Structure formats: structure tokens, C-alpha cells
Computed example of a mutant assay.
Amino acid sequence: MTSAPAKPLRAGIIGTGGIAQSHARAMTTLEGEIDLVAVTDLDRDRAAAFAAEHGDPTVFLNAQELLESAELDLVSICTPPQTHAPLAITAMRAGITALVEKPTALSLAEVDEIAEVETETGVQTLTVFQHRFGVAARRLGELVDSGALGRPLVATCDTLWFRPDSYFDVPWRGRWDIEGGGPTMGHGIHQFDLLLSVLGDWQEITAVAARQLRPTDTEDVSAALVRMQSGAVVTVMNSLLSPRETSRVRFDFERATVEVEHLYGYQSSDWIFTPAPGHEELAEQWNPAEDGTSGHRHQLAAIAQALTAGERAGVDLAEARRTLEFAAATYASAFRRTPITAGQIAGDDPFMTSMSGGMVPWEQTKNQAVTS
């Protein structure tokens, strides 16, 4: 006797701004696995227009009503970062898996609060780090895990983007208290999350951060020199000041270089595999299928598969926390002008509760000028 086919997951979206389009389009392509049945937004007209564009899911008055009444399995939280932790906690307590746009929360303390509720409820909060789920990234992970490429030695990770002053006309952008940080938290985090997913745990970060040009409270550029637990040496650059935009990640292993350059999403053809002399046969093992651009669809498909099977999905809180700690350590090192080791930010350290740590150099300079 064959079992009945699994019902599609019932999904909702909170916040129908720009990034919600990626969630809705991905859900639409996963017909039979995920049904978008509910949406809400502070702007009801925007929510209604969004619903009309994406299959007419029910429009709820607010997030609380959606979480209480829509009978959801999964909810995408596509609101400004300040709201991520409270909404995720509310969803978990309603028995609904939360999929949160990056960053998971504004601080490590908030992530730890979410983790406590996850333990209490048994319901997960997941973070959107879609670059992990592209076909080529998964193939790279398989080769690394097999040991075929040898030890990782060197890596570079660059998010060189351009955002004009007008980008920050949106009130929550460029503010520590709402967005949590600048390109380190809001832009480059996708690339260095991919890097960490391949190389594993980091050990120590020495960083700089600056506000060079943009009208923000936060940095508009940061750079970090990182030693991984494996011993690999890594550089990470995050910028919103770069007219020729690119996203690059390169890994140099003992037996091969594997690299990708793209902008907001890669295809398998964007990756280059270069075997080291004497290891040319490895090129035959680099054979990722071409399966569209890395994006929300791949991650949502993996989540649907896991939840339908009653398994834990990714990217889970432990993995997301490691990436967020990397961001916090970048700021702490830059502002304290000292290396920061993994696990050092803890307890009553001010960088536990704010990415700025209350010690932003340009803010302190401004305050000194005002009082002098």
C-alpha cells in the first residue's frame, strides 16, 4: 500500500517589500511543496497588491492575526532587521517555523534569546543564506568533506557593491538601532556566510571599519584579516562604495583553487575550478549541474523537504550565530583596534547587545566636537 502524497506546506509572508518578491516567486515555483496562503504588511494597500500578484493569498491585518489564524507551517519574515527577533519568537510560540531574512537578529544576545525559545518550543528559526544552497556550492562542500582538495590554505571574500546616498533615504537603513550595521551586517554577510559554510569555524579576526562617504550612522566599508581554525588565512572586504560591483569568493586548497564571481546570485557556470599541477584529474570531479541562479528557491526547496520529512532544516540557529558572531567580531576588532577571538564576545560585553558596542569612532568624534 502506497502512502498518500505529502500536503504542501502552508506558508505566509510578513512584510511585502522588495525582498518578499524573492520569497513569493520561489514559493510559486515550488507548487506542490509550498503554498503561499497568507501575507501581511503595515501598508495594507501594498499587501493587497502583492497578494494579487502572487496568487491571491489571504491578506491579514497584522502579523499577530496572520500567525494566530492562518494555520501555517512556515512563515517568511521580510521586515526590517529590528523586528526579526520579536517576530520569530512569536511565530515559534505559535508553532510555526520562522524563516528570517538576514541578519537573524540585531545582536548575539537576541539570537541567544531566540535559541532559548527554540529549546522551549521545539520549533526552529531559520535564516536566509541562500548562497549555501546553489548547486556548485553544494558540490564544493562535498569535495571538501571528502578530503579530495586537501587542506584549505588561503581564501578571499569580497562584497564590493555600490549604494548611492539616496539608497539611505529609507528611514531604517544605515542605522545601528534598526539595521544593525552597514555592509558587514546587511550585504557582505551573504558572501562570508558562504565562506564559513565551506571552511568551518573561524579562530581570530583583525579588522578595520570606516564611514568614508555615505550619510549613515554605520560603516560603509569594512575589511578583516581572519585565521580559521583549520589554519587557513582569509581576507574579507565589504563595501558600498564600489562603482564596478562584484561578489567574489575564492578558495585555495592544497590541490585546487575554486572560485566564483557574480553579483547577487551565481550559476554553476560562474565557478572556476583550477587543479594544482600534478592533480589535473581532480577537474573531472568538478561537475556541478547547471540549475539556475542561486537564490531563495533552492533554500526553500531544501526547507520544504526537511520539514515534510519531520527533520531539522537549515540554516539553523547555530550556523547563523557563527556568521553573526563573525560580524560582531569584525566590528569589535575595528572599534577596539585589537584582534578578537571566537567566543570572546560573551557575558556583559557591549558587543553582545549591539554591533556598535557603543564605541563607534566617528560618533565619538562628533560628540567630542559638539561638547568642545
Rank of each mutant, 00 (worst) to 15 (best):
A309N: 04
R337F: 00
F133K: 07
D193P: 08
N367D: 13
T159K: 04
M352I: 07
R93G: 14
R244Q: 14
G186C: 13
F50R: 01
A4H: 12
L126I: 09
A342E: 14
L300N: 08
G182S: 04
I77N: 07
A94G: 02
W271T: 03
T16K: 01
L153W: 04
A109T: 00
T246P: 04
I205A: 03
M359S: 07
G141P: 10
E280C: 06
C157T: 01
L72P: 02
S230W: 09
K7P: 06
P86N: 09
A109N: 01
K7F: 04
F129K: 11
P350A: 00
I205S: 03
H54D: 13
L106G: 00
S242A: 15
R175L: 00
T58K: 15
E71W: 02
A304Q: 05
N62Y: 04
P5G: 09
E325Y: 09
A302K: 04
P243Q: 09
A334Q: 06
A88M: 05
Q305W: 08
S372C: 09
W202H: 12
A26Q: 09
A332D: 14
V315L: 05
A51M: 03
I340S: 03
T90F: 08
I272G: 11
A302H: 10
T365M: 02
S166M: 10
L196T: 10
I19H: 13
S222P: 02
W202G: 11
T308K: 06
T28Y: 05
P183G: 02
D316C: 15
Y266T: 06
T341A: 12
Q267M: 05
A328L: 07
I205V: 14
D145R: 13
H298C: 09
V144F: 12
M237P: 09
S333A: 08
A289T: 10
S76L: 05
D169G: 10
L106I: 03
V370I: 14
G231I: 12
G182Y: 00
T16P: 01
D73P: 00
G358N: 02
H190Q: 10
A51P: 03
S372K: 10
F129S: 07
G314V: 09
V315A: 04
V135D: 09
E259S: 15
T90P: 06
L67I: 01
A136K: 03
T293C: 13
Q212R: 13
M352T: 11
W286I: 02
S268D: 07
W176T: 00
T125S: 14
H190M: 07
A38Y: 07
L36S: 07
M1A: 15
A26I: 06
T29I: 10
W176L: 04
E101Y: 11
F133I: 03
E219P: 10
L106T: 07
V170I: 12
A346D: 15
E259W: 08
R321V: 13
A6V: 08
M237K: 15
T90D: 15
A276I: 00
V258L: 15
L99G: 08
P350R: 00
S107D: 12
S22G: 11
R132T: 09
Y331I: 00
L317S: 14
A51F: 05
T90H: 13
R312G: 13
A304K: 03
F192E: 06
G347K: 01
V111S: 08
E179H: 01
E280S: 07
A309D: 05
A20C: 02
A210I: 06
T235P: 11
K102N: 15
T338C: 01
T40L: 05
H296V: 14
A318Q: 15
A52T: 12
R25A: 14
G357I: 03
M92G: 06
